[in-house]
Amino acid sequence: MLPAPSHLLCGTLALLSAGVALPATAAHLELQGGRSYMDSYGANTAFVEATFAPHTIGANGRLDWSPDLSAGWIDSRDVRRYRNAAYGTDHAVALVAAGARFHYGDADAWYRPLFFSFQLAGANRTTQALSTHYQFVSSLGWQGEHLSFQIRHISNGSLHKPNRGETMALVGLGFDL
């Protein structure tokens, strides 16, 4: 059983703070908000995400990855047809995730702000969309200095049914620490 949302959020903030406090570690912190959809049913969503200093992959130095930590919340939905189902839609879900964000290109390339990220996540509740406590998070987006846009999908990868997943559009405001 995972901790309650407040404990989950406090633990994540402590983890993010510890990561930011490491010497010589640059971090970019984003506050993200948007709308998430399961089938055609929407819900509000919010995330706090921290990415850290990049690490080069390969000899040419054009591909790099950054550690990526996030904590998020997806609001509940009142979907009448799922009210008595084993996995409902009437509870909000809190998640914590860790993984990597990938960028490609020279530092001055026009496409350098584009990114792909992949994370493993833990959720405090199960729903029609997220039917297990473990999830996979994939994001495709654009990250500027203080603004980001991304499409994110969260699901259990068909390891357990139902596997509707959550697909969301997020806008983020960020700053370097």
Rank of each mutant, 00 (worst) to 15 (best):
T89G: 02
H133C: 02
L114Q: 04
N163H: 12
L29M: 12
T56F: 09
F116T: 07
G105H: 06
D39S: 06
A27R: 06
H103G: 05
G174L: 06
F47N: 03
A71S: 13
L159A: 14
A97P: 01
N156I: 00
A85V: 01
L13V: 06
L16C: 03
A129S: 11
G34D: 05
G11P: 00
D90I: 03
R77M: 04
A21E: 11
S117Y: 09
L114G: 00
F136N: 14
F175K: 07
Y41I: 00
P67C: 11
V137A: 09
H28T: 13
T56R: 15
L159E: 15
F118G: 11
G122P: 00
V96E: 07
M38E: 15
S131E: 01
V93P: 08
I151P: 00
S158D: 15
A18H: 14
W65S: 14
A85K: 10
A100Y: 09
G141D: 04
G165M: 00
G144D: 14
N44Y: 14
A86H: 10
G42F: 02
R164P: 03
T167W: 03
M1G: 13
N60K: 14
I74N: 10
T25P: 07
W73K: 04
L31T: 09
F118P: 02
L2N: 03
P5H: 02
V79T: 07
